[in-house]
């Protein structure tokens, strides 16, 4: 009995220290990680400028955990309704399909939302999205905690978000992980 207590106590202290340290360093991340080990980060989130009632948003979701996760839903204050869609071509006809069951974010990998494929569909925009604006989209996952993506509005016909550092950075990250 005594032995066990002896071992348990330092462990608790160590854990508390770790929690405190991470709280100080990354307040939000630490709170989120406390519930589960699954962590998903968002990278290069962008949307197309829109003066009409809808817009598409795109981003890369990196799953750092060793198990698959599922992007279940999204929400945002800029739109009345937000859905996860994909685009499919069947005999030259374009169809948008709502991913009601969600989309898998592979373990130690990423899910890329991009034009012609998966996208976050913002329906019923409360105000036009202007190039250069930023807004938040909240993403819900099956395992990982909710993540807030800061989305940058690009030109109406943009095909990708801000390219520079972000893009190459993620590639390096991925390589390190696989090594």
């Amino acid at each position: 009995m005594k032995d066990i207590k002896m071992i348990k106590f330092p462990r608790m202290v160590a854990m508390a220290l770790v929690v405190c340290a991470s709280l100080a360093a990354f307040p939000v991340a630490a709170v989120k990680a406390a519930g589960s080990h699954a962590v998903i980060s968002v990278e290069n989130a962008w949307a197309r400028a829109s003066k009409v009632k809808v817009a598409g948003a795109f981003m890369t979701l990196n799953n750092k955990s060793t198990s698959d996760d599922i992007l279940l839903s999204a929400s945002s204050d800029v739109a009345k309704r937000v859905e996860i869609h994909t685009t499919k071509t069947v005999d030259g006809v374009m169809k948008m399909i709502e991913m009601e069951e969600g989309v898998v974010v592979p373990a130690s990998g990423s899910l890329v939302l991009k034009p012609g494929s998966y996208h976050v569909m913002l329906m019923g925009l409360k105000h036009p999205l202007k190039e250069g604006d930023t807004f938040a989209i909240r993403l819900k996952f099956k395992h990982a905690d909710e993540v807030e993506a800061l989305v940058t509005v690009m030109a109406a016909g943009a095909m990708e978000g801000m390219k520079h550092e972000h893009g190459s950075h993620s590639m390096q990250h991925k390589k390190h992980k696989h090594d």
Partner: peptide
């Protein structure tokens, strides 16, 4: 159609 957030902007970008 204008409610199309993916394919139509992509094609109109090509037009541009």
């Amino acid at each position: 159609y204008t409610f199309c957030p993916d394919v139509c902007p992509t094609e109109l970008n090509v037009f541009s």
